[in-house]
């Protein structure tokens, strides 16, 4: 699974213009587990953008935002001219290819690949991307860093 982090809200709105029509596409798999995507994060972002006066035309939550067949099956038609993707870079790349005429904003950064312990609701970064370290643990569904290490992972 892929751990991605959302950039600050202000950094997202810097990339937006008031006339933009926006669609929020949220991944309900890895991104949900690490607190970036899923239904609740999509709802939160749509609410905040709407309250700040932006025009949000669509909210989409789907399983595996990194899989082209998922979009084909869902037959999504967007009125928006700008897409905010709550997913890892692989999900964002997939959206860019599926909606080539629409501007796609990059609002997350990849931290690394993680193993998870769903009974304990924690996950641990095992294969980090550049600039990040392996071994850190985070709470599922929020991505909050954990002080205590609960997963001991063999090399």
């Amino acid at each position: 699974m892929m751990f991605s982090r959302l950039i600050p809200y202000e950094e997202i709105t810097k990339q937006l213009k008031s006339a933009d029509t926006i669609a929020v596409i949220s991944c309900n798999t890895c991104a949900r587990e690490c607190g970036v995507g899923g239904v609740s994060r999509a709802d939160e972002l749509v609410d905040r953008l709407t309250q700040d006066g932006y025009t949000v035309t669509e909210e989409v939550v789907l399983q595996d935002a990194c899989s082209e067949p998922v979009y084909r099956k869902a037959r999504i038609r967007l009125d928006a001219d700008t897409i905010i993707v709550l997913a890892c870079s692989a999900g964002i790349d997939c959206v860019k290819r599926m909606f080539p005429k629409t501007r796609v904003l990059t609002v997350t950064e990849d931290v690394g690949l993680f193993v998870t312990e769903t009974d304990l609701e924690v996950f641990k970064v095992a294969l980090p991307f550049s600039g990040f370290k392996a071994g850190a643990e985070y709470a599922m569904y929020t991505g909050a860093p954990q002080e205590k290490q609960r997963i001991r992972l063999e090399e």
Binding site: V39, A42, G53, E58, E59, V61, A74
Partner: peptide, 19 residues
């Protein structure tokens, strides 16, 4: 798998000025 596609604005909404 859960799939949610919400249309939050209708086409005619986009043609009228938005506060």
């Amino acid at each position: 798998p859960k799939l949610i596609v919400k249309k939050l604005m209708k086409e005619q909404d986009l043609l009228t000025p938005i506060p």
